[in-house]
Design a protein around this nucleic acid. Structure first.
Lengths: 216, 216
DNA sequence: CCGACATTGTGTACACCGTCCACAAGAGAT
DNA sequence: ATCTCTTGTGGACGGTGTACACAATGTCGG
């Protein structure tokens, strides 16, 4: 009984893992996806990577730092989802006003759908505290290099440029739009609105976006 | 060395505690107030009550059940804050429309201020999953017997009655209003908007409420 | 080629957590 | 006074994050 049975470790013959940081991050993401932030447990990630718990400390200073890395990946995935939704709406060219409005709707809709489809990642992305607006970290950006917050800002800029959003109300509009959509997502995911069917979610979600568009 | 030194237990001479459930709940509330839901740790609560960890299991089936009780208390405190804010605005009598609008603003403002002042309790109230809409539990109501959600509904009813909110848009309006305010609170408390000063919080919070009023 | 050195994974250990089980101390009814 | 039910105690187990010493491996200057 040397060492091949106890757990499912040792699929690897080499002493060195080779790509442990990435493996731990991938395991962490999988855990977050399935169970949200609390499910990101360091020991389980190392187990999945086929490595002893302490090995993680060569790549992350603490469980919390691993969680932050997972969080960045989740934000990045959200950014990609937004970009995809945005691209899908650029079909035929229409009036600039309509395009601008549609950008905002695309961002909001992608946000809500992501929250619904990737609940664990969504919760992980927002249930952890981070330093304020460390916006420049490319780890949480999408293909365009913009993170979710910046994508929203860009949509609002477009609205302001198209004259749909009065300049006086442009400043801070991110906060208003984000608040509404984010709050709705949270209430449905782990709040008192749990149990909504996907259809209800979609319908009321669109009404939330209507409210933003109208009330901004 | 019989038993009087090790921890700070045994301020009590009697074997029976007498009011352990309440003591544990009080300790749990204090923990939640100071550190949010994760800080509600069963063993610490028993320590503060001067009792051995397992004693808690005579009153709560699990840590989770203790947490739910704390959560109910937090919701009740929020309801009270709303009621206070509502009462404070009923100064001179004005037009019904204005009163109705003001009720909604009072509910929203109280919500945000509570989130700001009692951050730990606020997070506890909403960061834990519960069965959908177990609305009738009086443990989470305020002095009026209504819980926060019901207070919001009542404000919206008032608006509908006063003709400020078209009947067609009354249904589901709770979700819209709540989403906006809740989302803002979450973003400021533990999201990317952390670091806002109280003044910013108050100012943008009022704009969020403006948006709701206008966009509903 | 080979030994010094930096990197990365291992082993052992600790404190803390939630929870299970058997048992003892008291309260209340008969 | 005894019987029984409730409530607190003691001890244990498996799980977690993490600190420390050590071993295996890669790297680089000679």
């Amino acid at each position: 009984m040397s060492g091949a049975v106890t757990s499912r470790r040792r699929a690897r013959g080499t002493y060195r893992h080779g790509d442990l940081r990435r493996a731990l991050l991938a395991a962490g993401i999988e855990l977050a996806r399935a169970g949200g932030p609390d499910a990101v447990v360091l020991r389980e990630a190392t187990r999945r990577a086929g490595v002893v718990p302490n090995a993680a400390y060569r790549h992350f200073a603490s469980r919390d730092e691993l969680l932050r890395a997972v969080r960045a990946a989740a934000l990045s995935a959200l950014a990609v989802a937004m970009e995809t939704e945005l691209a899908g709406r650029r079909r035929r060219s229409r009036r600039a006003e309509e395009v601008a409005r549609d950008s905002l709707r695309a961002v909001g809709t992608a946000y809500l759908r992501f929250a619904q489809r990737e609940t664990g990642l969504f919760r992980t992305a927002f249930s952890v505290g981070d330093d304020p607006e460390r916006a420049s970290d490319p780890a949480m950006a999408g293909g365009s290099g913009l993170n979710p917050f910046q994508l929203l800002s860009s949509a609002l800029d477009k609205m302001a440029a198209a004259g749909v959003l009065p300049p006086a109300r442009r400043a801070g509009a991110e906060y208003l739009a984000w608040s509404a959509v984010h709050g709705f997502a949270m209430l449905v995911i782990e709040g008192p609105l749990r149990g909504f069917t996907p259809a209800q979610f979609e319908a009321i979600g669109q009404r939330v976006i209507d409210m933003v568009e109208k009330g901004l």
